[in-house]
Design a protein around this nucleic acid. Sequence first.
DNA 1: CGGGTTTTCCAAAGCGCTTTGAAAGAGGTT
DNA 2: AACCTCTTTCAAAGCGCTTTGGAAAACCCG
Lengths: 341, 341
Amino acid sequence: MNLKQLSEHLKLSQTTVSRALNGYPEVSEATRQRVLKAAQDLNYRPNTRAKGLATGRSMAIGHVIPVSTQHEMVNPVFGDFIAGAGEIYSREGYDMVLSLIADRDEASAYQDIRSRGMVDGIIVHGPVINDVRIAMLSRIGLPFVVHGRSTDVNLPYSWVDVNNRGAFERGTQFLIELGHRRIGLLNGLEHMDYAFRRRSGYERALAAQGLAPDPALMRSAEMTEIYGYRAAREMLMLGDAPTAFLCSSIITAIGVRRAVHEAGLTLARDVSVITFDDELSYLQNGDDVPIFTALRSSVRQAGRQAADMLLSLIARPKDAPGSQLLEADLIIGRSTGPAPR
Amino acid sequence: MNLKQLSEHLKLSQTTVSRALNGYPEVSEATRQRVLKAAQDLNYRPNTRAKGLATGRSMAIGHVIPVSTQHEMVNPVFGDFIAGAGEIYSREGYDMVLSLIADRDEASAYQDIRSRGMVDGIIVHGPVINDVRIAMLSRIGLPFVVHGRSTDVNLPYSWVDVNNRGAFERGTQFLIELGHRRIGLLNGLEHMDYAFRRRSGYERALAAQGLAPDPALMRSAEMTEIYGYRAAREMLMLGDAPTAFLCSSIITAIGVRRAVHEAGLTLARDVSVITFDDELSYLQNGDDVPIFTALRSSVRQAGRQAADMLLSLIARPKDAPGSQLLEADLIIGRSTGPAPR
DNA sequence: CGGGTTTTCCAAAGCGCTTTGAAAGAGGTT
DNA sequence: AACCTCTTTCAAAGCGCTTTGGAAAACCCG
């Protein structure tokens, strides 16, 4: 069933039917109702491609996931982010298209996306420090919103990010106030912008108390469970082992917990752990009392806000880029306590 | 840059340029090279929508994620599945479009997808027992592959699934052979087909040894960490507590481990745990020696196979539906041991 | 060199929609 | 009744590509 058939069936022109369907005023209410009814009955849906061709808009948003060739991990945060974004898209009638692109041919990939015209805008995931994609996309002129930010990029661009530096500064400071002096940092990959910021927050808090960061207590890797486990185990075997850990992900924190238990130690009493908590739906951090003391910020909410921002950017391309800095809450759970003596 | 401009620039007709670009034989090698070179230099990319309109194919695959209104969780398995499928798609030049659809308007949603013509085929996620979507899609005539199967659906359809029943039967049997008699089942939601099959495998193994399933030891819920924790904690407080658990997800198993530790017990020695392991990239089950004894099957691989199957179904729609049953390996880790006496 | 074959290229139609510019119809005014 | 103004409807062009049905050019061979 297409427009032509529908209009023939109604004995109206395609123009009128199209207008009736799209809510234009120059069609009488009576015929509009008649058209709507027929469309409903005959199960008519306009063809997306044809509509896109005619209007120049595709009603779809692209999400570009960089798939690193060496670390071919899917960021666990991703699922919840797009769930959030998807809520907004479906409300506004947008589709979501995913492009997994290998990092080596990113350069052409964005050009491609632009000229192939599949999407009206894109969300950029996983920005690194000084991310070239931002300049590239600005030049290309495709509306985009970055989930995160990119240090050293001085162009204006739209982003939604959590205050990573502030959060880790606060977490570190909280541990210091509990008397901890040796604090392990189990960070994500530090070429990623968020991880870079987290480390700088950690270092700032240490510096504020006159503590020197110890490279032996600072790790950076993909945030898997096993990374948390290994790093914590190794650090706990040091002569001057840390009494606390700051983790970039609840998954890593779970690995830390495993190492702590295996070493015969008890969380909070012997070793404190604070983790960043993205509020992943399948890894809730406890219910009434959180398992881990955490810096909490909902990635699903970030998805919603990024989507919202992108859609309004598409609606009003002349607007100045917006930005949104989300604060992470420090929530006290059962994994922190005063430093042992 | 569009075809018209490119052809004018080359002083050729659009036809010839199009043919040269798409590898048709009726164009001389010399002009083909010339066209290819110009396209490259001028950064020409055919417009997807226009191409789709003209060819009737959209070169995109839809993934429909049912977003339950009450349990609005994103299945953690999803990320790795699409990573696998995405590999195939990008190799074959397909895009991936995600539709999160609320379960209440599923009926119309598939019709929509079909008539809006955004995709050439779809992957159906999360089939339940007697899933109505299968009949619906068959009727609509849109190629599809189900990730999983649906008990009680008697139509032929294409699917890729892991042998859930066999896996859980084997896991249960393994525990029984270790001397366990009270075995807790921490299953996923049992209206989901995979969970239903897992339970039936569990029950079958019990029955084979003349053991009666005890409803007090069987739970069914969304596979979160906290669910594993709570369920295990409660069962461990029973008068005749289970000495082993069978978990549907490594995430749930992590919750069980937490409950076991909290109860002052030791994994393998006091309580055994076997889990299904989808080989999630951020939750590797150990490295050399697995943490958990597990039934392992890569969901990423399943994604690849489902994508492959769908693409060939699209290429040859007349083919009979195919199917692929993946076997899960039983791998021995550090979470199982002989039943304590 | 003329006729047939093959190669190379092209004009135009069509995919399903929106939208412009214009015409027809209805209603009101003098 | 003639004129004007809204309202309602329409025919046709256009979005960027593919593809059909030919035509022109090149080639081959007796």
